[in-house]
Structure formats: structure tokens, C-alpha cells
């Protein structure tokens, strides 16, 4: 499944938990890490467990556990191993934490997806290696707040300081055909700022974005959904390919532009996201 939006839900907040399935996000990340005070780690784990065992599990439930270098890493995993969830978000991702997580998941034979949260300089520079640790990884998630702290960079709304990090994450993710999730936009009231930030991330190649406010979900979903024009264009490309194939033509042009394999592939990908993909299209790239 392709997640346009992943919404953080504070793990120790019953009101948010019980509403987490109706806030419009493609997936949720129940947070046991930063959103939970050190003194409430135990209570949050228990609350999350009760919630997830009481209610029909929805699709796309991830839990952000505490990092390997905290005292809670294995406590969190011990609770999670019995829960019906989609996967785990691993904070302060690096080769070692990912390896330890993979070992635990193998040991307990858990069929869970993993999203490494890259938020350190080392994590960023070893992103390619992290992804290679496990087949469970479905995407890389850039955490810009901690990363900029680690880099000694000034965090700004314009986010020029994370352009490199974004591109690096995107490249590592695309190299392995997995998703690239952008850092959340932290000003919950600034919807226009969110719009610009999301567009910047998408234009660089991010495939989805995380959110810390439910009010950001719609905007993110919209940004990562193809527009009517894009869908129309993709359908025209596909029709063009079909016609060209029938005529035995190798290449063709649309609106005066040569249509080559990358354009066709992009059109097909877009139709997959928009839900307009048909099985017969499988033949087109052969």
C-alpha cells in the first residue's frame, strides 16, 4: 500500500487514540517516543495495547517505538509482538538499531513492516545500508527536527537546510523501490506554509508526508494525489502507447513531445496511485 499521509497519534492520549481511525490519514503512527513523557512510558504501552486489542484493527497502523539507546526499546517490542498492526517506525535509525530490530522480529517470527526514521547525520549517510538490512522496510522517513540539530543547521520554514537530506533519502528509497516519507510540518496553524512545504518535498520526489496535526492530513493527501489533468494526461499517454503498439510503431509523440519509456512508466505509476490502473496496462511496457 502506498501511504500519502501518515498521522502521528500520541500514545498516551485516549481521546486521540479512539478517534485515530476517522481522521482521514492513509496510515497512523501511534507514538510511544517523543509524545510520551518518560514517566508515562509504561502507561502508554498498556493503553495502546488495550486500544488495539479492543477495536477492530484498521489498515496502516504503525507504532513508533523508543530508540535502541533508550531503556524502553525491548519493552515496547515485547508489547507490540502480540498486536495486530502493520508495522513499526524505528527512530534514530542506523545500521545497528535496524539490525537489532530485524533480529527481534526474526526471532519472534513477526510479519511486520518497518519504516526507519532517519534523523541523525550517520543515519542519513548510511541510509542505503540501512535499507539493505531488512526486506521488511517499506519506506524511509526523514526526521528533520533532530537531524538539523545533529547537523548544527538552523531549522527554517523554507527548509533549504534539508534539501540535501531530502534528496538523499529520496535517492536511497527510490534505489530500492520503496517509499520516501517527508518530515512533518510543525506549525499546525499554518496551512499555507504546509502547502508550500509539501509541494517542495513532492517536487523533489517524496512519495508521502507525515503529520503531527490531523488538520494537515487533507492537504497532504491532496498534494500526493494526482490531479484531474495529470490523470487525463496519463490516460492519453496510455491510449497513445496502445495505438502505437497496434500500428507496430516503436515510438510516438503526444502534444508534440516524444513519448518514451520513462514517461510511460510515470503515467502507469500515476494511474496506480489514482486507482485508474487496469490490468491490461501490464502489457504496455513489454
Amino acid at each position: 500500500m502506498n501511504y500519502r499521509s501518515l498521522l502521528f497519534i500520541p500514545g498516551n492520549n485516549p481521546g486521540m487514540l479512539q478517534s485515530s481511525d476517522i481522521l482521514g490519514a492513509d496510515g497512523i503512527i501511534i507514538d510511544l517516543e517523543d509524545a510520551v513523557a518518560l514517566t508515562e512510558k509504561d502507561a502508554a504501552r498498556i493503553l495502546v495495547r488495550e486500544y488495539l486489542t479492543t477495536f477492530e484493527p484498521r489498515k496502516g497502523v504503525f507504532i513508533r517505538i523508543n530508540p535502541l539507546d533508550s531503556p524502553y526499546f525491548y519493552d515496547d517490542l515485547d508489547v507490540i509482538k502480540d498486536l495486530k498492526i502493520t508495522g513499526i517506525v524505528l527512530p534514530k535509525a542506523g545500521v545497528e538499531p535496524m539490525t537489532k530490530l530485524e533480529e527481534y522480529l526474526d526471532e519472534h517470527d513477526l510479519d511486520l513492516e518497518v519504516i526507519p526514521l532517519v534523523e541523525t547525520a550517520m543515519g542519513l549517510e548510511t541510509a542505503l545500508e540501512i535499507v539493505q538490512v531488512s526486506d521488511r522496510i517499506i519506506g524511509l522517513f526523514l526526521g528533520a527536527e533532530d537531524l538539523t540539530l545533529d547537523l548544527g543547521a538552523k531549522r527554517t520554514k523554507e527548509s533549504k537546510e534539508i534539501e540535501y537530506a531530502r534528496s538523499r533519502i529520496i535517492a536511497a528509497a527510490k534505489a530500492f523501490g520503496i517509499q520516501a516519507f517527508d518530515t512533518p510540518f510543525t506549525d499546525t496553524d499554518d496551512i499555507e506554509g504546509l502547502r508550500i512545504d509539501t509541494k517542495n518535498a513532492k517536487d523533489l520526489g517524496m512519495t508521502g508526508k507525515t503529520a503531527i496535526s490531523p488538520r494537515h492530513v487533507d492537504e497532504i493527501n491532496k498534494a500526493f494525489s494526482p490531479t484531474e489533468e495529470e490523470i487525463d494526461y496519463a490516460l492519453r499517454v496510455v491510449e497513445g502507447v496502445k495505438a502505437a503498439n497496434e500500428k507496430g510503431l516503436g515510438a510516438f509523440s503526444l502534444d508534440g513531445k516524444m513519448i518514451d519509456a520513462p514517461i510511460i512508466k510515470r503515467a502507469l505509476n500515476l494511474l496506480k496511485t489514482s486507482g485508474d490502473y487496469k490490468e491490461e496496462y501490464d502489457e504496455l511496457l513489454k
Binding site: S19, I22, G24, S213, P214, R215
Partner: peptide, 11 residues
């Protein structure tokens, strides 16, 4: 309202 549930209902 800023309440996400209220906004969902409004939407």
C-alpha cells in the same frame, strides 16, 4: 473549532 473530530464532522 480546532478539534479534529469537529472538523471531520464539518467536512
Amino acid at each position: 473549532t480546532k478539534d479534529p473530530i469537529g472538523l471531520k464532522i464539518a467536512k
